[in-house]
Design a binder for these strands. Sequence first.
DNA 1: GTCTATATGTGGATAGAC
DNA 2: GTCTATCCACATATAGAC
Lengths: 212, 212
Amino acid sequence: MTADDETTARPPAPGRRDILEAAATAFTRNGYAATTIDDIAREMGATKGRVYHYYRAKADVFLDIVTTGMQELIDGIEPIAGNGGLDPATRLWRMAHHHAGLMMTRNSFQRVAMRAVEMRRLGEAPAQQQALETVIAMRDRYEQIFADVIDEGRKAGVFREVDSRLATKPLLGALNWISLWYDPQRGDYNTRQRLADEYADFIVGGLCRSPR
Amino acid sequence: MTADDETTARPPAPGRRDILEAAATAFTRNGYAATTIDDIAREMGATKGRVYHYYRAKADVFLDIVTTGMQELIDGIEPIAGNGGLDPATRLWRMAHHHAGLMMTRNSFQRVAMRAVEMRRLGEAPAQQQALETVIAMRDRYEQIFADVIDEGRKAGVFREVDSRLATKPLLGALNWISLWYDPQRGDYNTRQRLADEYADFIVGGLCRSPR
DNA sequence: GTCTATATGTGGATAGAC
DNA sequence: GTCTATCCACATATAGAC
């Protein structure tokens, strides 16, 4: 294991943290293209000199938010998916529950991360293009973790006969959509838990064999 | 019923159709803010003079796409929701199926429409701001149509005990997400039907009483 | 109705003071 | 490490020819 493992993003350095938080908030408010570097700087009570001291370009700030967000997702569900002591339906329920939670508690980062995946290009720089494709690859890996658990449940007979890879689409679509409508200002711990419960029930219910 | 009914958008005039199609394609590719009027014009083999002959501003083009897309959604499901001859689960299944279909066959319009709802502002002009809020209102009405059918099914005992309004979130989230990953270039009629079937099954299954 | 200029504002990125 | 000042490219929107 090297310190520069390609498939694992490390948390951002302390100096960059404030910038990422401010930028995530600003991107969430107005979207990537409509957000200016001045917006980001103003969000943290500074000027753009500060931003450009830590990042070469706006796209790099964006990519750092996105990879951080994706890594948070992966770190959260991998231990659940790999817990062989639990049956597949329970694991899927907990994975969905955890994912839903992150969409709320880490709303700005996750909302920005969700947007990145639908982008095709992110500018002229080939390095940034490659970074964007790395993010897409992280998303694919993430979907595959869900697909594997679905396959286990299907073979065990608890889930319907579905194409597991395709089945992740409505499942994660429902969950990801939370990042678009949930208002992080509102709601306490309990309401978030109840909401995540509802989502997890809905998702596992949608995959289980029909009662008829 | 007046010709200028506030709650019903009419289809765009013929001269505007080409512009909307081109703009929807361009917005889908690069997003609203990153798309230039030149991009839109180039998309239809013209120059910006043409666009500005029909629309005062880029935001107006955007809003015309969005209201058209939302109206297509409403027109499609209202007759299904109002069909008293069908039980609630069947109606919900068909509504979900139809919605899924529009996300694929009308991908560019629907993808742009989905984006509008998450926007808070769309520029400085108050008229555009008001138009954006009208779109949000259309979305709310649309969600309510689903919520009403869910309530019927809940009272009839076929659906779980859920907050119907909240239940529309995972349901429509799963469906709307299609617009983000589906590639309209690929897939024929049959594959679209199969996909819509899967989604409708998943959604109705997620709301039905658990088999246990 | 559609085009080619062009006026005008704005935003990403850099240079260099402190 | 943070700031101010500035360059330069580009995009919206307009004016006016055809």
